[in-house]
Design a protein around this nucleic acid. Structure first.
Lengths: 282, 282
DNA sequence: CTGGACTCTCCCCTTCGGGGAGGGTCCAGA
DNA sequence: TCTGGACCCTCCCCGAAGGGGAGAGTCCAG
């Protein structure tokens, strides 16, 4: 029997379907011990059973095939453990997101407290230390965390103390397309330039603002309320949306206390507001 | 502004990408309030913002579009809550599976205790009450649970006491293909016939068996070990694999105490065993 | 030698969008 | 009234991880 196991036998032993085994072969994850040149038949050997089982386990954890392949290619146990730990970390993050979504869902389906407080004002230009970049929407959170961290360390080195709360500018394309320009900043007196950090001036603007309370899991609801208001007032959006983190993770770990100010640069158009239709412009 | 919001404006407000909004339209999830017959332009209204947000939330929970659509079509709050609860249940099951996979992975990567005890024996034909069905591999667990439950209740009604531990027969195609015949049974003296439950005779067989200890998350490892043995002994597999639940969830909730006997019907071929190559058949 | 079981490759399908081409539409400013 | 740029349309392809199935070749025991 030194011809090895046929794919069917191997499938029975490992509980991986034939289709799956072929795909793993094709992906280079699990090369059959021998492939008949003439017939293309795959022949496995018993020593491959443990490998198949390891692959099976990682797939159960939704590790992408590419990554499983890299993992198997690495022989150093430490490096291996690192890759595994990293994946488990990802799973955990995913779980956190799911939990947050459940909470946000509950809040969304419950009767709304509403009470949206919208204000319009004119802001002055502000000098800040900023990190700018064109970011994929799926990477927004990661990019934000890294940028903030770099800002913090650069400012610490430069000995610059913040002169106000941190904030960000977010291109509308970030939401309507898949990619857009992001700016995160911290106001300081003399912005340094180092690495990704550079001086920047937040331009003056006419802002329509509101404040989102709590964690950001359902910040889109507040965006929706603000957008509704803007539209009702027949305001036109001009430029990237702004967020100012009046109270954030750097101030308190109690996320229910967070306060995020959202401001949309807007200008009045000639059209009538929907709600105050009587007050047509003269 | 009673033309409504363009898809771009709606996208900014809801944080759903334009592509995604078009897809939700196509899927019937979020019909624009108006679609221009001439140009195909989609126009939304502000009242649709909350709906978009609800969809967003459910998608964050990986609810399939189809299901979200059904959910939105249902107006009865109770029915709605039921669908949601069901989905959350699914998420929880998924989480349990992930946890189990992590544990199983750890065990697999740790040094193996091994110590596989394999025995061969001949079993007698056994009279049982059984539930049979052709099952998709992805539904094995669910089907098993339902079948066992039905067996239990039918036997309770018939007043038949088990004369041995429950078990099952599993077609090899269940693993190599995507679907196969499953039989789960409980031995009784006078098997009743009711609903899916019917009398059945487990045929006599020459079995090569081993016992898997603990929960079934890594039962494939034991299958692998048994399969390796079978192959090394140059045994040929004949017929569906059998499992007998000597100790299972119905006996104890401590899953580490579970004992599952796995038996493969086998017969000796003429080829030499690999390990005992000296004992060639005469 | 033959029939049935097994295996091969190849192509299409699934979900939920993203990328991009090619072309039409809207609207504000000139 | 024209025009340019922003916006929108449809259509097609792609990815991940396989499943379904067709059509054809292979293996092996009787």
């Amino acid at each position: 029997m030194d011809t090895g196991l046929t794919i069917g036998e191997f499938s029975r032993i490992t509980h991986l379907s034939i289709k799956t085994l072929r795909r793993y072969h094709e992906a280079g994850l699990l090369q059959p011990a021998r492939v008949d040149r003439q017939t293309g038949y795959r022949y496995y050997i018993l020593d491959q059973v443990p490998t198949a089982q390891v692959i099976h386990r990682f797939r159960e954890l939704d590790m992408p095939l590419r990554e499983v392949g890299e993992l198997l290619a690495v022989t150093d146990p430490d490096a291996r453990a690192a890759v595994i730990a990293q994946h488990l970390q990802r799973l955990e993050n995913q779980l956190d997101q799911t939990k947050a979504a459940v909470v946000a869902l509950r809040r969304l389906l419950d009767p709304q407290p509403a009470a949206l407080r919208v204000q319009r004002w004119r802001t002055e230009a502000t000098t800040v230390a900023a990190v700018r970049g064109v970011v994929d929407r799926t990477h927004i959170l990661r990019w934000y965390a890294e940028a903030m961290q770099e800002l913090d360390s650069v400012l610490a080195v430069a000995g610059e103390a913040p002169t106000g709360p941190p904030g960000g500018l977010y291109d509308n394309e970030l939401f309507s397309d898949e990619r857009g320009t992001m700016v995160v900043y911290i106001p300081v007196a003399r912005p340094p330039r180092s690495g990704e950090v550079e001086p920047f001036v937040i331009p003056a603007a006419e802002l329509t603002t509101t404040t989102h309370a709590g964690p950001h899991d359902d910040i889109d609801v507040t965006y929706g309320a603000l957008g509704t208001y803007v539209k009702q007032q027949a305001l036109e959006v001009a430029g990237p949306v702004r967020e100012i983190y009046r109270l954030g993770p750097r101030d308190t770990t109690d996320s229910s206390r967070w306060r995020t100010e959202i401001g949309w640069p807007t200008f009045q158009t000639v059209a009538d507001p929907v709600v105050n239709a009587g007050q047509a412009p003269s």
